[in-house]
Structures are given as structure tokens and as C-alpha cells.
Design a protein around this nucleic acid. Structure first.
Lengths: 245, 245
DNA sequence: GGCCATTGTCAATGCTTATGACTAATGCAT
DNA sequence: ATGCATTAGTCATAAGCATTGACAATGGCC
């Protein structure tokens, strides 16, 4: 069958007419959000950027929220696509957290809109399965496994979402915050806030990556200490043999 | 065309000067946000709720963002007011994290608007000083102390902010998410997502408080394991003496 | 009394999300 | 191939939002 009827379109189960499609709209949304931030993202603007009527997007998405969910799934896909769990559950957990953060930081405006939302798309299901797999490999079982999974998953989402939300603020507002570390806290009164004063010169130099790796090491460290079964990979078996928890 | 439109418009008697103040507006904003959520919070609605002209609030706040910052400071004050660090730095850290979360969960809509914002108000400075004090008591010094403080502080803010943001969503959307745990994940395909399948019956029963205490115990556990100086309080000295980290 | 900054009111601008009516393109059955 | 139901794109429009500038009443001050 399949003669010469628009070969590349025939792949889809249902042919798309015209110039718009959900996929194209999501892609252009991401582009707009990356370029102009949240302020540059409205359905009329999106329609115009696509070269269509300002309201045309409503033919493909029931509402703006519907579109945001599609963007969320795209982000999760970008973040967890091709992630294959190795034999070390510790690095599986650490890596999936790092990857989510990397994606969110690459698309802060999109992430700040779509974080904390459950898409129930295939990409989300996949990463959930991977993380639960790691938690089970750590020896947690039943209700405790479910709780530990939620704790680790929500930690990754909340941290990355929070960093992204900050980066999605106006540059003006971000500068206000940065200035707090570099000047306001630097000039703090010694008697009123003695502890801030003690580390005041160190505060401006702290980098975001450093902060993230610190909290991640705490979380993973606390998890490993509580895990019923140590990690079976070469590196961690070595560490466990040395009596290090 | 126009006949008698403006002639007998039902006019409310003009309010007395001083019927509005920044404090009153912040209080009414919190009330509105708690009652109706983010959707019920616009400057026109706020003005009407205060019994004034919809635009009257602009006489006291330069913009909506200006008002949101004032709300943020009010929340921090409510959360950290009266917090006195004890001799146990572990519980100081845990308690201040718990208190922030409690406040944010009590005012989810307000928190979701104002989280991640630096107010540089006295309430914020105070809680920062308390947390840095605990980190110093743990034996961290210099740049490492600054990094650990940021990690712990940002963890508390991001987790509580994230939970609040979720609670600030429409009830309809929250239900969508809850249903994901109670039905969608329950009916997952065993072969496609074997790990989800394994814990599927446990997922719906996991409570938010439980998840929070789990991640908090991981974070605190990881921190304690890395701290140069163990906690000096009776309870933790005992634990340290038993060789438990 | 008279000055005048402050603050409440009003009208208006230009943006937003969203909907229903209308039109034209398309796939499908005949 | 032809006609038709479906549907994508367009248009007009509604209702609500943040914000602004003009205007007017108020109350402190001299």
C-alpha cells in the first residue's frame, strides 16, 4: 500500500491539516520562553510567533494550562530521555536528580511554569520507575519504599523547580537578591547578627552548583546510612568494606 | 447617545482619609489569599474587599510586586517569630525548617506568591543568623560554613515553597494529581513499569508529613555525618557515645 | 481662613485568557 | 471525482487584569 501520498506525513496515525500541531506549538513555546521569559509568553504572542491567528492555539490545547502540561512533559522527556540505570543505585539517584536540575536550569521560565505538575505522560512514568527501582535496589520495601521514593523524587523536583523559578524572575529582581549577599549581608551589624557577621565575607562567593552538590550529598548520605542494602557497585562495595557508612 | 448614565450612579460615600494603611492591606491580602486562593487575589478585588475603590491600594504600594514582598516578610515573621536556638544545633535546624513549612502550609497561596523572594527584612535576617549559628556550632568554618548554611536554608525554602505551591493550585488540579497516585499508578502495566507495579498499592497511602520527615531526616543525617563537631546536647551526646552517626 | 500634600475616586489604556460564530480546507465514503 | 461532515484557522467579542493620569475631598499646618 502506501503509494505516494505525502510520505512523511503518512507516519502519523492521524494526518494533521494546516501548519499547526501540538508538537510545533510546544517547541515554539519553549523557544519563546527561553528567549523572552515568562513575560513573553501569552497565547496571543505565541500565535503571532507561529504566524497564525492569536487564538489559533486554542484549536490544539483546551487552555493555557493544558499547554503548560505538555511543556512539562517535554521537559521531563528532555531530562530523563535515554537514562539507563546502572548497577549502582546511588549514582542512579544522584544522576537523575542532576539531570532534572540541568534541564530546568536550561529552561528556567518553562520550568517555573510547569514544575510541581504531574503530567502522567510516558516520560514521567519512566523516570518514576527508574527512581523506584533504585529505592528497591537499596533494600527498602513496601510502604517505606514508597515513602522514600516520594521523598527523593519530590526533593529533586522542588530543588530544581526552586532554582528555575528564581532564574525566571526579572533580571532586576534577581539582582536585588544577589546584592543582598554581596552588600547588605556584608555590612551587617556585628552585635545584632553575630553569626552572619562571622561568615559575611564568605557568603558572596558561594556558587549555586556548590550549594546543590552539598545538599545532594547530604540527602544521598542520609539515604545510604539508612538503606537496608548497600550499593553493589565496585566503588561503593569498597567503601562499605572499609566500614564507612 | 448618552442619556443619563452618570447622573445617578449609586455612589458610595467617600471614605475617610486613613481608612487604608499598608498593614491593613497586608492583613486583608492574607485573608483573601487564605480564603479564595491565588485566583481570588487581584488588586481590584482586594480594593473592593477593603470597601474602597478598586485602585485605592496603589496609593500605598507602588505595584502588586511591592505588595507581595510585604506579604512575604509577614510570613517570615509569623514563621520565625520567637524562635530561640537551644543548645542542640540539630534540633535548631530541624525546628526552623519545620516551622517554615508549617507557616507556608497554613498560607499556601500567599507562600506560593512570595516564596523564593528575599525581603531583607528583620525577620529574615534573624532566622538567617539562627541557622548560621547552628552551622557554626556544628563545627563548619569559613567558606564551608557559608555553603552549608545556603544548602540548609535553600532546602527549607524550596521544600516548603513547593508544597505550598501545590496546595495553592485549583482543587481540581490537585485532585488530578492525587488521582494519579490513587488510580493511574495503581493500574500501571506490570511489564512496562515493573518497579512502579511493585509498590503500586503503597503509593496512595503515603502522607505529606511522612514524606517531609523522611527527607528532613536524610538531610539532617547527612549533615550530622559530615559535621566536624557532634551536637553537645544530652540526647545526641548519648547517641555519639554509642558510636552511632 | 488659606495652602497643599496626601489619599480616595473615576475613566481609560492595553494587555490577558477564553468563547462562540463564521469560513475554508481536508479526508472519506460513495 | 465528487459531495459532505469534520475541523483548523479567523474574527469579533467578552470579562478581567495591572497600571496610569486627572480630579476631588480631606485634614494637617500656618
Amino acid at each position: 500500500m502506501a503509494v505516494t501520498t505525502t510520505a512523511h506525513r503518512a507516519r502519523r496515525p492521524r494526518l494533521q491539516r494546516g501548519s499547526l500541531s501540538r508538537e510545533k506549538i510546544v517547541r515554539e513555546s519553549l523557544r519563546l520562553l527561553d528567549a523572552d521569559g515568562i513575560a513573553g509568553f501569552s497565547l496571543p504572542k505565541l500565535g503571532r510567533a507561529l504566524g497564525t491567528d492569536p487564538t489559533a492555539v486554542y484549536r490544539h490545547f483546551a487552555s493555557k494550562d493544558d499547554l503548560i502540561l505538555a511543556i512539562a512533559d517535554q521537559l521531563i522527556e528532555e531530562s530523563s530521555g535515554g537514562l539507563v540505570p546502572g548497577d549502582c543505585w546511588v549514582s542512579t539517584l544522584a544522576e537523575s536528580t542532576r539531570r532534572l536540575r540541568t534541564t530546568y536550569l536550561a529552561h528556567p521560565a518553562a520550568a517555573s511554569l510547569s514544575a510541581y505538575r504531574t503530567t502522567q505522560g510516558p516520560a514521567e512514568m519512566h523516570i518514576v520507575d527508574v527512581i523506584i527501582g533504585a529505592v528497591l535496589a537499596a533494600g527498602f520495601e513496601g510502604a517505606e519504599a514508597a515513602t522514600v521514593y516520594r521523598a527523593m523524587g519530590d526533593f529533586a523536583l522542588s530543588w530544581a523547580g526552586c532554582e528555575a523559578s528564581f532564574l525566571a524572575l526579572d533580571e532586576r529582581l534577581q539582582k536585588r537578591d544577589t546584592d543582598a549577599w554581596t552588600s547588605a549581608y556584608l555590612a551587617v551589624d556585628r552585635r545584632q547578627y553575630p553569626h552572619i557577621w562571622q561568615v559575611r565575607t564568605e557568603l558572596p562567593g558561594v556558587g549555586d552548583d556548590e550549594i546543590f552538590e552539598t545538599i545532594l550529598s547530604f540527602v544521598i548520605g542520609g539515604l545510604v546510612a539508612r538503606a537496608p542494602r548497600p550499593c553493589g557497585c565496585a566503588q561503593h562495595r569498597q567503601a562499605a568494606a572499609n566500614g564507612n557508612s
